[in-house]
Structure formats: C-alpha cells, structure tokens
C-alpha cells in the first residue's frame, strides 16, 4: 500500500469512528433519540466503547494472521476512540443520570456490581489512554509499555461483564463480546506459549 493510500485509509477510519458520535449529536438536536434520550445516549456510547475495544483487540491477531502490519497501525486510534466514547458514557452517567449526587454515585459504585465493573473498566483505561503517545512508549520502554497495555484485556472483559450484568434477560450481545474477547485472549496466550514458539521455529 502506498503512503498516500495509507493516509486516506487512516482518515477514513478516523472519520468512521467519529460518525456514531456525530449521528448521536444530530439525533439529539433533531429530537430523534426516542422517548428516553438520556438512556439512548448512555446505551449507545457504552455500546460503541465495547465495540471499539473488541475491534481494537482483534487488530494484533489480524496483523499476525494476515502477516500484514496494516491492522495494528490502527490500534492506538481505535483504543483512543473507545476512550473517547467511554468518557461521554461516564459523564452522562455522573452528570445527568445521577445528577452529580456524589452520595448516590458512591453508593451506586459500591452496591451495584455492574456499576462497579464499569467503573473499574474505566479506571483501567485511564492510564492506557495517558500512555498512548509515542513519547510515553519511549519513556516507559517498549517492554513495560506492552505489559501495561495488556490491561486492556482486563478492561474490555470488565466492560463485557458490566454489559452482561445490566441486561434484564437478553444476554446475546454480552455473550458475543465475551466470546470474541476470550478467543482473542486465548490466541494471544497460545502465541506466547513456549510450545507454540518451538513449533513455529521447527516449521
């Protein structure tokens, strides 16, 4: 792929990830968010967070399987977009859903497992977002940086649990996300295993 095409692709992915937010904004101003706009916004931004996290986690396996470095180049952008959506998600929960009632929020986080998991997932994503720059990779050293960023598997899993715990009955999507995450994590672990490395070296 030429440098020019790569730039076009980069821009397309960048705009593509922004579209859900733009669409929600459009629906907010045209009154097209349904009977419960707050609920719609919270659900949609949460949904995009987990979609992007899961998509981001598939990029490394994809790069290795395709033996093409292209997918992994989008990892940071996708990850940061996931963080962007989770920030809106959390802000809406704190400011609108809970009306910034600190007492109620603390109680909610401690008492309700789905909120607890959601909050832990968010807290895990914060250091990852902060250390997402090239400078921070250099400062931490690639090895430590990689170790730190493995936390994204934990964050995404907590996100899936958060989702699983809040639905009333229809757990289809939480289970789909869970299955993809498990597969991706399993694949990475298998790749890291000495046996696999030996086999690959032998071949």
């Amino acid at each position: 792929m030429t440098e020019k095409n790569r730039r076009i692709l980069w821009l397309a992915v960048f705009i593509g990830c922004m579209l859900p937010a733009a669409d929600l904004l459009r629906r907010l101003f045209t009154g097209d968010l349904g009977a419960d706009p707050v609920e719609t916004l919270i659900r949609a931004t949460g949904d995009w967070t987990i979609k992007l996290l899961v998509a981001g986690l598939l990029l490394t396996p994809l790069t290795r399987i395709l033996r093409n470095p292209l997918p992994v180049r989008f990892r940071r952008m996708i990850g940061l977009y996931a963080f962007f959506y989770v920030c809106i998600h959390l802000t809406l929960y704190l400011a609108v859903d809970q009306g910034l009632d600190i007492h109620a929020i603390v109680k909610d986080v401690l008492k309700r497992p789905y909120i607890t998991f959601g909050m832990m997932a968010f807290l895990l994503l914060v250091p990852l977002a902060i250390t997402s720059t090239r400078k921070m990779v250099a400062r931490l050293g690639p090895k430590r940086w990689r170790q730190l960023h493995r936390a994204v598997y934990v964050a995404a899993s907590f996100g899936a649990v958060h989702y699983y715990l809040l639905v009333k009955l229809d757990i289809t999507w939480p289970l789909i996300y869970g299955a993809i995450l498990t597969t991706a994590l399993g694949w990475r672990m298998w790749q890291a295993m000495p046996l696999h490395k030996t086999l690959r070296a032998g071949a």
Binding site: E39, Y114, L166
Partner: peptide, 19 residues
C-alpha cells in the same frame, strides 16, 4: 427495596432529563 442490580429509589419520567 432495590432491584438486586439497580436502584429503585429514583426514576426517570419519560420526557425529563433528570431523575
């Protein structure tokens, strides 16, 4: 009496922004 997974102390009236 809360639902085990969410609170029942407040509600959002459809059409309102806050609970």
């Amino acid at each position: 009496v809360d639902h085990p997974r969410w609170t029942q102390a407040k509600e959002r009236r459809i059409g309102d922004f806050f609970r």
